[in-house]
Design a protein around this nucleic acid. Structure first.
Lengths: 194, 194
DNA sequence: GCAGTAACAAAAGTCAATATCTGTTACTTG
DNA sequence: CAAGTAACAGATATTGACTTTTGTTACTGC
């Protein structure tokens, strides 16, 4: 079966965002692109921001997919998995900003407004790091007092390489070797802690 | 001797920025506050952005002063000094954003434009961290392959707590205990590295 | 030569009339 | 009842005439 009407509206919205940017994309434009009245779009999305939130949600789901694959790959040792997971996150953001700077700005602007969508995304990332950390503790890779606070620490320490605001300011200028060195230091620290 | 004319113009500019924000502060307003023609301001600053750059430079010098005191306090052990230095930086930013949110936005907007002023400031911070790292290496606190790349790593890892863009997004919401935990992990890592 | 000014063109900003967009309601069609 | 529409009020954007601001030049007083 083909796309649901909801999906078709979302596709059209992304297309409009791509063509005209978030400031000049309106519900009327999206409706016009689909040859329907804007009232009908409101049948499927409560408001313009709900529509944009749904776009952000889809984007973030795409970001998460390869991360989840890494997080659940139990046969790889936790330290290697942790590094691979955060590296994948940093690479995704870096690639997005290098390949399509304008679209990254759109993504960034839309997610900046989508407060609870982003909160759920962060919670999701947090949970996957916790899982890797706990696996590492079980395997004796490192001691672990609190997976929660340690996961937060990992995300904080690496945000320079994956937080949209930072990635956008950096414009992919910084080397991922800097990321690798930092990640190695963090893992050394995790393993050294009493 | 009293303030130079340059300083008086800078003071008036800060006053205008405080009162009306960066968007509504013009060279004409600054001149009017000093009872002079705007042409005369141009005698002392090449352009409006040069004037704002000078304001940013003064602010950043104020940020640096207490940091330099810590960096050059050779009698305190390097690990403690490193933590105190970065903590002081994070605290300064945090306090600025909590005490006077509007003024932090002004500072942030002005420094966002002042590209080479900020580059010099980052270089200055980088140098002070290098100094602490080298002192630690001499005292046997940690091994040190490259002070430069390690200093960069420390600034990267802690940027969540001191980079204007991050501090502004966070609005002082995050606990400095999170910072302390991260800094302890980083120092543990530094000490553990082969 | 340092501190200052008046007069000016070009760029940027203001403001109010006008047009467009958002979100709702009541209604239609398969 | 899922998908769709027309008509509407209020909020938001756009436009174009009209300031204001930026930055320069040529000049004054000490």
């Amino acid at each position: 079966m083909s796309d649901s009407i909801r999906d078709r509206i979302l596709d059209a919205t992304v297309e409009q965002l791509r063509r005209h940017g978030p400031a000049k994309t309106g519900v009327v434009d999206v409706a016009r692109a689909l040859d329907m009245s804007h009232s009908n779009v409101y049948k499927h999305f409560a408001s313009k921001s709900a529509l944009f939130d749904a776009v952000a949600e889809r984007w973030l789901a795409q970001v998460m997919a390869p991360l989840t694959k890494i997080a659940t790959d139990k046969k790889t040792p936790a330290p290697k998995r942790l590094k691979a997971w955060v590296r994948q996150l940093a690479e995704t953001k870096r690639r997005k900003v290098l390949d399509d700077t304008e679209m990254f700005a759109v993504y960034s602007a839309v997610t900046a407004e989508a407060h609870d969508v982003v909160a759920r995304h962060i919670a999701h990332m947090h949970d996957e790091i916790c899982e890797i950390l706990r696996d590492g503790a079980k395997a004796g890779d490192w001691p672990l007092k609190s997976a929660d606070s340690t996961a937060k620490m990992i995300l904080n320490a690496t945000s320079r390489f994956h937080h949209p605001a930072m990635v956008q300011l950096d414009q992919g200028k910084s080397d991922l070797k800097e990321f690798d060195a930092l990640m190695d230091l963090l893992i050394a620290g995790l393993q050294a802690r009493g």
